Simulated assay, not measured.
Amino acid sequence: MAQAWKCAGLRWSAGGPELVWDGGRRSALTWGKRVAFGVAEGGVRTCVGARGHACPVRAAVPGRSTGARCEECARLDRAHSVAADTIADDPRPYRVYLAWFGPGMLKVGITAEERGSARLLEQGAVCFSWLGVGPLMAARRTEELLRAALGVPDRIPYADKRAVRAVLPGTEAERAAEIAELHARAVALGGWPESLTPAPLQTVDHVRVFGLAELPTAVGAVGELVAGGAVSGRLVAAAGPDLHLVTGGGDTVVLDTRLMTGWELVPAGSEEVSVPVRQFKAAPPGVQSGLF
């Protein structure tokens, strides 16, 4: 019987994207590399636990869940999350950032200064600029100020991000234009917390890091993994948790690696994708409605 592995998700390092496995092993991902795995026959997806602790009941979780946590573990994980606004006494400095994912898709967010740009890579931000740095609550108030005064959201749905990656503006200047405009509007606002130090506009572009230049248009995204199913394809790009894979049939399909967690994975016995794939609504002409 083939050895089974459990994936802990995709991580971004200085060398690029890596798949992390339980036990600490990492698999570096490079463009052109074949990504192939199967899901154990008869397998059940189980909760990954919270805050480094295993789920006490090893609860089954739905295949479509990107969190791979049962209700109780999800509650525990979120209770200790900065994003949930439940931690007010974190002494670390935080940065406020502006991120751009495609035309008209900008968001504001915060991240611990010590994490550098890791949060932006994890979210799949095509380009970004820092807006300021200060204590956690000052960063949080600045984020809320932009949301209220300028209507800037703090979340962009992953489906929207995926839909535009193959048709992004061609130059860094074009991609940075909306960030520059929003940065100027933000610094002109009154009411900034005094303890937050503004940062000058300095746009960082991730198109080359993600491999998005001349990216083939994806026809769909893996909806979920299933017992006995398999995924196989050649890696052409990665952004946030997503891998863009060219399958044996020549189609490009997006795999959200968060769907891999909680499953026992084995070497692929097939060169094809044999799990449910959701076709994108704006598929190119001539694409069949049933992919696999």
Rank of each mutant, 00 (worst) to 15 (best):
W5R: 15
W12P: 15
A14E: 14
W21T: 11
G23L: 03
R25H: 13
R26C: 09
R26H: 09
R26E: 12
G32D: 08
R34N: 11
A36Y: 12
G43N: 14
V44W: 14
T46D: 05
T46L: 12
C55L: 06
V57E: 11
A59Q: 14
G63T: 05
G63C: 05
T66Y: 09
C70L: 07
E72R: 07
A74N: 07
H80I: 00
A84H: 06
D90S: 08
D90L: 09
P91C: 03
Y94C: 01
Y94E: 02
W100Y: 12
L106T: 15
G109P: 09
S117Q: 06
R119T: 09
R119A: 14
L120Q: 13
E122P: 00
A125K: 05
V126L: 08
C127D: 12
S129N: 10
L131T: 08
G134T: 03
L136P: 00
M137A: 13
A138K: 02
R141K: 12
E143I: 01
E144C: 00
L145K: 10
R147I: 02
D154S: 12
R155A: 09
R155I: 06
A159V: 13
A159Q: 00
D160V: 10
K161D: 00
V164H: 11
L168R: 01
T171I: 03
E174G: 09
R175M: 09
A177Y: 09
A177K: 14
I179S: 06
V187R: 15
L189P: 02
L189H: 06
W192Q: 01
E194S: 14
S195D: 15
L196A: 06
T197Q: 10
A199G: 03
L201M: 06
L201F: 06
H206P: 04
V209C: 07
G211Y: 04
L212V: 02
L212D: 07
A213W: 01
L215K: 03
L215T: 07
T217F: 00
A218L: 13
A218S: 13
A218F: 10
G220K: 02
A221C: 05
G223A: 10
G223M: 00
A227M: 10
V231G: 06
L243P: 13
L243M: 07
T247N: 05
G250H: 05
T257W: 00
R258M: 06
T261W: 07
E264I: 00
L265E: 07
V266G: 08
V266C: 11
P267G: 08
P267R: 02
E272P: 01
S274W: 09
P276V: 02
V277L: 04
R278M: 00
K281G: 15
A282Q: 10
P285L: 03
V287I: 11
S289H: 12
L291G: 11
